[in-house]
Write a protein that binds this DNA or RNA. Structure first.
Lengths: 281, 281
DNA sequence: GTTTTTCATGAATCCTCGG
DNA sequence: TCCGAGGATTCATGAAAAA
């Protein structure tokens, strides 16, 4: 099946050619199909921000009677937990295959999906190193007053297996960043807004869930070395690619939706322009 | 099997007698066996602090060459994830059975077990309302400098099913407690230490993971009403019972280990004495 | 130009009751 | 099970508009 797919695929069969030719680009492709063509054990760090399967059933109206612009994109629709689990098992398995034994993976989610992801990681043989909580300084309130304000998301950091050795953790750099004390598992960042948030032609958010660049940069700096290869299987608007490039890591990224791919490539072109010719004072 | 067990059991068969006679006591029993004898839909709130399945493989030595007193009790030993899952499926199923349709359950854990518990909750039909992170002001550092300081634990709050209605959430009280703003999903408490921490004869901690009373009190006040019935299937040293009693809730608790049961009952006797005859000024 | 006010908005599983 | 009415409900931030 997989072999047949490979032969029929229009894209280059790169399984045994290394991945040099794929680096530094956001590839428009299905994530699992793309990963299946990569050679084993070829990346050092993975950052994955998959669909959350939010299962939103109704509209939500604010107290001022405006409607909340919720995540209702096609890519977040799954036919129940089983379908979501199956999808995640597929991409996580491929991630594990392409991860070097010295590499680590990060996954982000909310209570809607993170418990499924965490258990899947463990079932697939990954070994969790930490869970980290992103504490949001400015979360959306709970308008109906029926729950606690959902003010955090969860990140999981895992190595390839219990026995895997030699993963990268830049302890000293993290300690320095935290004012001389060990970096803890609770990280505080604001939502991605303002100039950092990519907008489309109408001035509206281009992607519903763009992550704060600073947070992804911390992950890249903590868990990889300059020259390492960083992979993002759900690239979205390319935040991981930007973080990797800013810190001298090599990278490759996959994204299904063409409009996100275009936006990400624009963003990266702009970054490179700025780097070559820094802002005039 | 279960029926036979019931007949042979020394404890009273209380399945069809209500649970009034069981209230206000810490029962020494196997949790699943005890719960299986309770009638359906008889409790309003459950707080469960199950074994974490820490999977500690080696001793951990501090930089000053002292040994870390880790959780290595028999009750935290499981034969892999599968055995742990099976155990949790059993007690969570019983919890769901005895929970009223208007009731909710809280479960606490770390990355070692919380992803298994969260997914199990979802698979059993519970509906997660929030995950809450307990941010520790004074966590144990990571002595080897190979991971981030593990500075939080995770609590899950769920109702009996997606369709379940009428659960208790004392929104206004929580908002007041948080200085007039909605209570968020990140809670900061210090570890249970000092006078609150129960000690045995040697002056050593009696229980390895005694939870901060203030945190459990918040849960009791947020999610139950005076007179409601609170259940703790892993009572340990009776923190949930103390919290319930302090706030005028009825309660019942189960604990396997006789020494914990004795300590919890001592603690509750002391609380009642204080309540009857407040401290002389 | 400067300060103040208004307004928009963010990964959201966001109600209850009676007919 | 669905529908409609009643009623209770928001925080931080940045941009735009107004003073």
């Amino acid at each position: 099946m997989l072999l047949a797919k490979r032969k029929n695929s229009a894209s280059v069969a790169h399984a045994d050619k290394g991945i040099d030719g794929l680096l530094g680009k956001v590839h428009q492709a299905d994530c699992v199909e793309f990963l299946s063509k990569l050679p084993e054990a070829c990346v050092d760090l993975i950052f994955a921000d998959p669909p959350y399967n939010l299962q939103l059933r109704h509209e939500l109206i604010r107290p001022n009677l405006t409607k909340v612009d919720a995540v209702n994109d096609r890519w977040d629709q799954f036919d129940g937990f089983e379908a979501y689990d199956e999808f995640c098992r597929a991409w996580l398995s491929e991630c594990r295959r392409v991860l070097k034994p010295t590499g680590t993976i990060w996954v982000i989610g909310t209570y809607h999906n993170i418990y499924r992801l965490g258990r899947l990681l463990q079932d697939l043989g990954f070994w969790i190193l930490n869970d980290v909580v992103w504490i949001k300084t400015n979360p959306m309130p709970n308008f109906r007053g029926v729950r606690f304000t959902n003010a955090h998301e969860t990140l999981l950091w895992a190595k390839k297996s219990e026995k895997a050795k030699g993963y990268t953790f830049n302890y000293a750099e993290m300690k320095a960043e935290n004012g001389g004390k060990q970096m803890r598992s609770d990280w505080t960042f604001s939502l991605c807004t303002g100039g950092e948030r990519l907008k489309n032609g109408d001035g509206r958010k281009l992607h519903p869930t763009q992550k704060p660049l600073e947070m992804v940069e911390r992950i890249v700096r903590a868990c990889s070395k300059p020259g390492d290869i960083v992979l993002d299987p759900f690239a979205g608007t390319g935040t991981t690619a930007v973080a990797a490039e800013k810190h001298g890591r090599r990278w490759l990224a996959v994204e299904q939706q063409p409009d996100y791919v275009a936006a990400a490539n624009d963003r990266l072109r702009q970054l490179r322009r700025q780097t070559e010719r820094p802002t005039v004072q």
